[in-house]
Design a protein around this nucleic acid. Sequence first.
RNA 1: GGAAGGGUGGCAGAGCGGUUGAAUGCACCGGUCUUGAAAACCGGCGAUGGGUAAUUCCAUCCGUGGGUUCAAAUCCCACCCCUUCCGCCA
Length: 427
Amino acid sequence: MIDRQALRRDFEAMQAALARRGEAVVGDGSAWARLRELDDRQRQLKNESEALQAERNRVSKLIGMKKGKGEDASEELHAMGEVSSRVKELDALTREAEALFAAALLEVPNPLHETVPDGASEDDNVEIRRWGAPRTDEVPAHWDIGTDLGILDFDAGAMLAGSRFTVMKGAAARLERALMQFMLDLHADKHGYEEVWVPAMANRKTMTGTGQLPKFAEDLYKIEGEELFLIPTAEVPVTNLYQDKILDVAELPKRHCAYTPCFRSEAGSAGRDVRGIIRQHQFDKVELVHITHPDRALSDLEELTAHAEAVLQALELPYRVVALCAADVGFSSQKTYDIEVWLPSQRCYREISSCSSFGQFQGRRAGIRFREEGGKPQPAATLNGSGLAIGRCLVAVLENGWQSDGSVVIPAVLRPYMGGMERIVAK
RNA sequence: GGAAGGGUGGCAGAGCGGUUGAAUGCACCGGUCUUGAAAACCGGCGAUGGGUAAUUCCAUCCGUGGGUUCAAAUCCCACCCCUUCCGCCA
């Protein structure tokens, strides 16, 4: 969430940075449009309430002293009875105003970093760099490759759970596990991340800390009858590991990698990527998370993105990196790079990782803070990125490794994780 | 699921309803002493919001939310979490 002092101090600049996301973000009826008035009202009520409370505290102390000396305090008692009931009324109003302000505050997205390119849609995203030489011959879609090899079973997924669920068998199941292990080993051993294993469900506070709630409830699966949600990404539990903590500046940066399953309702994406395993309700992902000094947020983003890219380079999969434009950057993010892998069957690059810096937005929201020597606690910066989405990676391996005889060559770095298997062939 | 106990500052751990934001110890920071270090001694050491030019002042915070009272860490109610025992179970 945005800084409350900055709301008053830098109103114009903040509004301009928000408006780049689209006029609706700051337009009539937006949370932002109501925010300043709600802030004023809350503070005004609070000031009144505090003045009365100070009076009450002062006289109550006096009553205590008088009683201690055995003196009569009935006059003060009577007067404070009235003050007390007024405090109660004012307090209720103050709390109401505070709740309205807080609710609006949680709906305001992160003001964009100045280096985010302008744009009106994802078509305006800016390509930063490319790696590898894409193959341009005719390659079947991964669902055909997988079905022909007998390793992807879409009917079984539909039978067990419904659409957007898949069963992987044999080499595909093994490949899913191999990718997971390879990625975790790479980040833990070569990139210096501490591996963590976390719950795949999270409560409301945790979901709010990273920004999934309150605004995006329809994207989440909620456990019936409980205040628990299935996580849409490991970002949620891993970042929130530090919620309401004050870290010493010497402990920064914290860098974690984690494997988790991810669950997304995909509300609003009906009809998109309905075939294959590009868009599933449940998928596996290895995530990278940084908790860092705000001064390092942007340089860490470059590092984190490079760590995610290293996975694709090791797998020898061609990709490109794009900077998301103003219209496409997510709610909590101040700047995002997407990594897109080459899918020969579609003859285009498709998202396989999204790396974002959140600045202090999540730190403020989740109470993740750090203290510099002799200084006050301040919100830490957070970042995260997929390193990588495993299902989509498997798609890329199948398509990029496909041979005209129908088999698939397994990237060399994965073979140790595949029991030495060098290629997948039909049984 | 049943029973019992417990949630207080970075940690440990006190706290008859009234000058307690909270004893004490540890940790941490500064100083004295020392060639240096340790020990000892002295001093300091929570967060959030708000007011002021400023030393500073005001309010809130003892798991969470309500309630009683002039006044709540302290009394009452509900909920959450943790520990132990029993039951069930991968």
